[in-house]
Amino acid sequence: MIRPDAPVLLEIRDLQARVEDQPILKGVSLTIRAGEIHAVMGRNGSGKSTLSKVLAGHPAYTVTGGSVHYRGEDLLALEPEQRARLGLFLGFQYPVEIPGVSNLEFLRVATNARRSGKGEEELDTFAFEDLVKERLQVVQMDPAFLERSVNEGFSGGEKKRNEILQMALLDPLVAVLDETDSGLDIDALRIVAGGVNHLAGPDNATLLITHYQRLLDVITPDYVHVMAAGRILRTGGKELALELEERGYDWVDAELAATERAPAEVV
């Protein structure tokens, strides 16, 4: 839902980042207000996951330019765990397995960390179990998954559901969901999308990274951005996704070539 007067939650300005010596983000700008759903699309390797990890504070990426403000605060100055406590959530494209760490325990510690960030009291084990049972229904997940180690041996789709379960527990203000739809069967896609819709509200915002229109059929984006070679090349409404679906990315490439030529023409 677009409301021009809604508060800005995330303000990304000309963000540049590299991994080791390789520049990957080359100037990303994006403004996200409360209540909005943004979709980011783009070819493999265009930098979508990199953007999400830079936002969450992954240590492998070095920011070389630009700024990110989260509710007016300099996001890049915060530790990853502080970002999470303040309500930034990243649903990973490839959630890692953490053998030996109980999923239930992990979810409880994470939930309490987020609660402390909201100035709320920590939940004891019993109160937490009640909460998690309730939130499990959002993703229709079997409680048996709580007993296992974090993501260990989970199927691809189960891992994605576990991500959405975390989102449901952490109650984020800005959720960045990196290809949460890939690897999901048709029913799971419906359930996960239903969960995202259920959690989306006027006070929070969602940034969906996806390759597929089928997700955007269920979660209607307010904005669609196309990323290419570390930049947002084009921004439009939901019809932009449909156009991509029809025409592929070739025309984006043509446009990219044009912008790269542009400075030379000026000279």
Partner: peptide, 20 residues
């Protein structure tokens, strides 16, 4: 990083993994 991105501080994350 996965644990940190869920609000768990670096050292606690290490300790969680070690005690697991």
């Amino acid at each position: 990083f996965y644990l940190q991105s869920r609000g768990i501080a670096f050292e606690e994350a290490v300790s969680m993994m070690v005690s697991g």
